[in-house]
């Protein structure tokens, strides 16, 4: 192995499956959402996005389930649900 002469990383991104850390998942009630953006701006892992119509949605790919979005939503439009429950809502 003399691929690199000194320790460098350029093979790609080092990514962890942080979704597996989650015991509770945030579930958004789109009806109650007033599109204030608090959830997106406070999400530590940038897992909440805004689309072209300025609607917000949650991605579960890397969400660690910290619950900040649910806690900060002024309309309580996000609920933390135990993984495996309420999946179809």
């Amino acid at each position: 192995m003399r691929k690199y002469i000194s320790p460098i990383g350029k093979e790609g991104l080092y990514v962890l499956d942080t979704a597996s850390w989650r015991t509770y998942r945030p579930v958004m009630d789109k009806e109650a959402c007033i599109e204030c953006g608090a959830c997106m701006s406070f999400c530590p892992v940038n897992s909440i996005y805004r689309d072209q119509e300025k609607k917000y949605y949650i991605s579960y790919d890397y969400c660690k389930g910290c619950g900040i979005c649910a806690n900060e939503c002024p309309k309580d439009a996000i609920t933390m649900m135990l993984e495996g429950e309420g999946e179809n809502e």
């Binding site: 002469i5 000194s6 320790p7 460098i8 350029k10």
Partner: peptide
Amino acid sequence: HAILDPKEPMAVDPLTPGNILIE
């Protein structure tokens, strides 16, 4: 090698496990 330049983004000195450190 080991250049900090946005034109060629790389991590200089990422955590390195022992077997590679030996190399």
